[in-house]
Simulated assay, not measured.
Amino acid sequence: MNGSTAATEDDTPVLEAVGIGVRFGGVRALDGVSLALRPGEVCGLIGPNGAGKTTLFDALSGIRRPDEGRILLDGTDVTRRSPVWRARHGMRRTFQRQQLFGQLTVADNLVVAQEWRGGGGGLVADLLSAPTRRTHEKGRRERAEAVLRSCGLDGIGGAYAGALPVGQARMVELARAVAEPPRVLLLDEPASGMTDDEIGHLLSVIRYLSVEEGCAVLLVEHNVAFVMKLSARVVVLDLGHVLAEGTPAEVHADPKVRDAYLGTVSGQSPARTVGPRGDSSGQECNTARDR
């Protein structure tokens, strides 16, 4: 059974990319890419290495300004807004390479994500440990503990983030991204390096965020089986273009997708066998085709 509900009762896109183009010198990494993401929807974004997936994430999150097109958040053009502005207005992101504060504890990583709201009184209130400051700090600690529990990380709040195994570190990064409830969550290979049990828990957390909290999720992941199981809709990028879009079943059955990424219909070698780390082993493509 596939993924979460495609959208909540509100069918207005919370995030929309319109005709996005990105160039690196003479190379067009993205060429006229458009997609819309609605509240409560989990959308998978797949394609061979070099297809433009991370570049699209960079454009959506504000790390790279597109050369063409617009980014809309809740109907507002945010193309020129900074990543910080977008994060503070509900757009959060994780990265292929973990971006945790390794010298802070797990709990402190989540508290830091809430500190931008401040607590009034400035530096003086901090130095004097004003009651309002203590109240805000207590609330943020309680929120951090609750999020860690929901992510299956209770009991490790005092551990240093830099000492965690890969699977736990990835889950902590997700927990930090949702320390304040997001409107949009961009997940870049969140299951990479996780055990099967950790992947199962990750799937449950993402479903909860989409179904119960109405968070829109755009998911890049080389584990195609994970994407197909979780997503209500899948978008396939290839060489900077949208190659296909539809339900997991429709995308899996599309001959163009099978030729470019999942393997040929005839069962012969895929047209481009690029593994999840850019090697030419074809392992990921063959695994996806077998599934």
Rank of each mutant, 00 (worst) to 15 (best):
G263R: 03
V235L: 15
D254S: 09
A232E: 08
L237H: 14
L239Q: 15
A244Q: 05
A249H: 01
D254Q: 05
G246F: 03
D238L: 05
L230I: 12
S231M: 06
R233T: 11
E245Y: 04
L239D: 11
L243M: 11
H241K: 15
G267E: 01
T247Y: 03
V234P: 03
K256W: 01
A253N: 02
A260E: 01
V234K: 05
A232C: 11
V265N: 01
A232T: 12
L237M: 14
V242C: 14
K229T: 12
K229L: 09
L262S: 01
G263D: 02
D238I: 08
V251C: 11
K256D: 13
L262P: 01
V234E: 10
R233W: 06
Q268A: 11
Q268R: 08
L230D: 09
F226Q: 14
P255S: 10
D238F: 12
D254V: 09
M228E: 07
A253S: 08
H252L: 04
K256L: 14
L230T: 12
P248F: 07
S231K: 06
T247Q: 05
T247R: 04
A244C: 09
A249R: 07
D254H: 09
H241P: 01
S266G: 15
A253Q: 03
S266F: 00
D254Y: 05
V227R: 09
A244G: 06
R233M: 04
P255R: 11
V257N: 09
P255D: 11
Q268Y: 00
D238R: 05
